[in-house]
Amino acid sequence: MSANNNLYKLTFWEKYGSIIKYIGKRILLIIPVLFTISLIIFTMVEFMPGDPINAFLNPEQLTGTVEEVAAKRAFWTEKLGLNDPFPVRFFRWWGQLLRGEFGYSIVKFQPVRNFIGEHIYNSFVLNVFAFSLAFAIAIIVGIKSAVKKHSMYDNFFSVFSIVGISLPSFFMAMILIFAFAVRLQILPFNGMQDPLNIRPTWTYYVLPITVIALGSLASLLKYVRNAMLEVLKQDYIRTARSKGLAEKVVIYKHAFRNALIPVITLVGFWIPRLFGGSILIEKIFIWPGIGLLMNDAYVQKDRSVLVIVLVFYALLTLLGNLFMDVGYSLADPRIREGGSK
């Protein structure tokens, strides 16, 4: 655009400058917070009682000759760098992290980098489906609920969504397994695929997805409904209606579009679970995601895995918050201005 048009059209920087500055500032703020959290986590994991070597050397393996056991211990102490003082280990760990190395798993005899990606992917696949489902239901139901406020429909779903969050997820999962795998025998109990290729792979996704979706539906639905209600009150909706537009057009084209912005920011809230999975659900469904990895690491005292997974969780939460804040500021420029001043 030419300079003359400046009066009418904003340049890219003018339009998005403040938001970019704002995002930049927020990212900079994440770094010290993440560092502090990692320090706390690292300290907690390091000072967990119990000899990390005893924890994975099976008792029976320690009954060799004294020299053999000593050599084995020395090997792992050296390998894991346990002889060094705490600060050295902490900064070495950060150094490794920056080089993309996540430490060495004493249980799997592999660098953590080799397998963590797959676990993240597994969690992600499951949760993407689950959240998409929850999101779709929430939007469809949420709009109708808002339009038909306090109707039978609205009330049913508001109660139904509360039911979904009124039982512990492991128990909900057990009930579903019991109903669909034990009684009806139409879905598998657990796992990700059938080793004998009899059952289609999608059937393995149904139950975990249902449990996750049920758990997230309540807040989503409430949020969509409220956002819609808010929009429906606005003047431009009244105007649209008074222009004689069809009710469907008013709702879906005008109202919903505007309600969508605040709803999308909710994605930020999901980011941690989207990639981080859930320990309980992955444990009960034997789903090899990041939650199951963390559970095993805790049970087997695999400290390098534990640290990296916990820091990963923290990072996800921070990124989620960032996403939400950016989303809000996009939706409402006043926030951004407040922020950049």
């Binding site: 057990m174 397994i177 795998a181 034990v182 025998q185 598998p188 109990f189 657990n190 796992g191 080793p195 004998l196 444990k283 009960i284 034997i286």
Partner: peptide, 21 residues
């Protein structure tokens, strides 16, 4: 001919057996 060693969990293993999984 085919042998599969499948990881099961304590909570459901018995019914996996009874159901035939």
């Amino acid at each position: 001919k085919d042998l599969v060693v499948k990881i099961t969990n304590d909570e459901t293993e018995l019914d996996e057996l009874l159901v035939g999984d």
